[in-house]
Amino acid sequence: MKNKFLLIAVFCVLQSLFSQEKEKKNTFKFDKNGFLKELAENACQCIDSISTANKITDSIASEINVCIDKQVTAYQLGVQILNLEIDTETITDSTKTKQKDLDIVIASNPDSEQYKEAYYDLERYLVNNCVALKSKIAVNDKLNNKSLSNNPLAIEYYNNGLDAYDAEDYEKAISFYKKAVTVDPNFAFAYDNMGVCYRKLNQFDNAIKAYEKSLKIDPNGLMPLQNIAIAYSYKKEYKKALKAYERLRDIQQDNPEVFYGIGLIYFQNLNDFEKALDNMCKAYVIYIQQKSPYRSDAEKIIQMLYTEFKNKNNLDTFNTILEKNNINQN
Rank of each mutant, 00 (worst) to 15 (best):
P224M: 14
I228R: 00
P224R: 11
P224I: 12
L201D: 06
D218M: 14
Y211W: 01
Y232M: 04
N206E: 08
K209P: 01
F176D: 14
K216L: 05
I174V: 13
N193I: 03
K216D: 01
Y238E: 01
D169G: 13
Y232H: 09
F204L: 03
P185H: 00
V183I: 15
K216E: 01
A173K: 03
K172Y: 14
P185A: 03
L222W: 00
K213R: 14
A210M: 11
I228P: 07
A231F: 02
N193Q: 14
A207E: 05
A173L: 01
N202E: 15
D205F: 08
E168A: 13
A188H: 00
K200T: 10
N186K: 15
G221N: 15
K200A: 10
A231V: 02
V196G: 11
N193E: 06
A229M: 04
L225V: 11
P185G: 08
F204Q: 06
C197S: 13
A210S: 15
A207R: 10
A207P: 14
K172W: 08
Y211D: 02
I208R: 10
V196H: 06
R199H: 15
I228S: 06
G195V: 04
K200W: 04
S175W: 13
A229T: 02
L222C: 05
A207V: 09
A231Y: 00
I174T: 08
V181L: 03
G195W: 00
F187M: 01
K178H: 02
N193Y: 07
I174H: 09
I208H: 15
I230Y: 03
Y232K: 13
A173C: 01
Y232I: 07
F187E: 11
K179F: 05
G221L: 09
A229Q: 05
D218V: 09
I174W: 12
P185Y: 09
N186W: 04
E212P: 00
K216M: 06
G221K: 00
D169L: 10
T182S: 07
V181M: 04
K172I: 07
K235I: 04
Q203Y: 08
Y191A: 13
A190L: 03
K239L: 08
S233P: 07
S233H: 14
V183P: 09
I208C: 12
K209I: 07
I228M: 15
A207L: 03
S214G: 07
K200I: 05
K209V: 12
